[in-house]
């Protein structure tokens, strides 16, 4: 019985970590190209509501995810037009995007509060997914495997492909990349759109899988955790995965201790933990300025104007 609970805890952890990992990977790619998009939370909410509406109207959950990714891209392109084409301040624009996304999702989702939809089934057949032990590995839906595959893909893309090299070069020195003849802004649009797609998916994972129903502000600030994790991971996909799972563990611990009436710490304190850990992670990184600076893409957050 205890064994069963342990397995459940681990599985909950993986489910909790997956959207953070997805959103983080998207942001990681965007930041590697030199764009700091603080609108992750907003893009997640837009994806969450768009995915939920699409899934509940059609009754077809995969369609919900597709729409969520598209909605995330649309939200990120809004950021792109302002920050990349018009050269607005990226921090302010990202914050505005989050506020906008929060409001838009509340408005659009108002009529859907309380409706439920069906989750995606486990990817593997019930003999594996339902097995008391093997479900630990095979018991998840396709999005979980996708997030892990994307971690692989992102690492390989950044380090072993020409496009990845170009993307990094744009993030390290936009002026140099421009001088060599790469379309800096176009490449950044691509990276931002990828970030938007993954943020959309991540948001939809909350409304379509974690709690398959619509509630206002369903992502509950996890977009910020994803953002912090990108820094925490020093812009490395595998460390991001590790970080996401650690945060997943903390959140799961909070959930189960609440359920078990186990009160080492008041639940409010536990609920604070992931966010506190985020602040701590950022502080630790800030304390090592030269290392932190070395790891960060050098043009992060800097608007680029050709011909300047």
């Amino acid at each position: 019985m205890n064994f069963d609970i342990a397995i459940s805890i681990v599985m909950t952890l993986v489910v909790a970590a997956t959207p953070i990992l997805l959103a983080g990977l998207g942001e990681l790619i965007a930041e590697k190209s030199g764009v700091l998009n603080l609108g992750v939370e907003g893009m997640m909410l837009v994806g969450a509501v768009a995915g939920f509406i699409a899934a509940s109207l059609t009754g077809f959950t995969p369609f919900g995810y597709a729409v969520a990714a598209l909605a995330g891209i649309c939200a990120s392109l809004l950021f792109g037009v302002l920050a990349l084409t018009l050269g607005s301040n990226q921090v302010a624009t990202g914050l505005a995007l989050t506020i906008f996304g929060t409001g838009l999702s509340s408005l659009a989702g108002a009529g859907f509060v309380g409706t439920t939809i069906t989750r995606l089934p486990a990817l593997f057949p019930p003999t594996l997914a339902g097995h008391p032990l093997l479900r630990l590995v095979f018991g998840y839906d396709v999005i979980v495997y996708l997030s892990i595959a994307l971690t692989f893909a992102a690492t390989w893309f950044l380090n072993h492909t020409r496009l990845g090299l170009i993307l990094r070069s744009v993030g390290e020195s936009d002026a140099s990349a421009h001088a060599i003849g790469y379309p800096v802004t176009t490449i950044r649009y691509g990276a931002v759109a990828f970030g938007g797609a993954l943020a959309g998916l991540a948001g939809a994972y909350y409304s379509l899988a974690v709690t398959p129903m619509w509630a206002d502000r369903i992502t509950a600030g996890r977009g910020w955790i994803a953002l912090a994790l990108v820094v925490f991971s020093s812009w490395r996909p595998w460390r991001l995965l590790l970080g996401a799972y650690i945060f997943g563990a903390v959140m799961t611990l909070e959930l189960y201790s609440k359920a078990a009436g186990f009160a080492l710490l008041p639940p409010e304190m536990l609920a604070m933990l992931p966010y506190l850990a985020t602040v701590a992670a950022l502080a630790v990184i800030a304390m090592r300025p030269s290392r932190g600076r070395l790891d960060a893409p050098r043009c992060l957050g800097k608007p680029f104007r050709a011909g300047a």
Partner: peptide, 15 residues
């Protein structure tokens, strides 16, 4: 120079 400091010489040339 249009160089990318954290990268190797060869990577810079490849770009």
């Amino acid at each position: 120079f249009s160089l990318f400091e954290p990268m190797t010489v060869l990577e810079n040339i490849a770009i």
